[in-house]
Structures are given as structure tokens and as C-alpha cells.
């Protein structure tokens, strides 16, 4: 994603960012992305190990729902 797209997306996320200087926008955008990505990774790891703990009949349902 190029810089313009990133800023555009951040504007969609929160309108007030247009008041912030561009470097701040970029830093913030990156930090939000980093956090959401890492959180997604943690959640998927939790899902992977959690699915193994489910009863067999529910495991396939969970797998198709969450993957």
C-alpha cells in the first residue's frame, strides 16, 4: 500500500487525522496496522490450539468457521 492509500485509509478510520502532520499520520497508521496484525496473529494462534481442545464433532465446525 502506498503512502497516499495509507493516509486515505487512516482518514476513513478517524477524521481528525487530517489535522495531524503527515509524519505523525504515517507513524500512527503503521502502529495501528502493527497492533492489529499482531493481535490477529495472537488470536489465530489461540484459535489453532483452541480448536484442538474441542470435541471432535465441534472441531470441524470450528475449523470451517474460523479458518
Amino acid at each position: 500500500m502506498n503512502n497516499k492509500d495509507a493516509i486515505e485509509r487512516m482518514h476513513q478510520r478517524v477524521g481528525f487525522l487530517s489535522y495531524l502532520p503527515e509524519p505523525v499520520n504515517r507513524d500512527l497508521d503503521q502502529a495501528v496496522d502493527d497492533y492489529l496484525e499482531s493481535e490477529k496473529g495472537r488470536l489465530e494462534k489461540a484459535i489453532d490450539s483452541g480448536i484442538q481442545a474441542l470435541p471432535l464433532w465441534l472441531r470441524s465446525i470450528a475449523r470451517s468457521a474460523l479458518r
Binding site: L36, I61, R67
Partner: peptide, 20 residues
Amino acid sequence: LREHIEQEMYNQHRKGFQHL
């Protein structure tokens, strides 16, 4: 901004969890 982050975060796999 915080609520937006939380919304995106808690929306991850939400439909899957609803189904489960």
C-alpha cells in the same frame, strides 16, 4: 481512534465465533 482500533480488533473472526 481507540474505539476504531477496538472495533477492528474485535471484528477479527467475529462471524466465525458467532457461528461457533
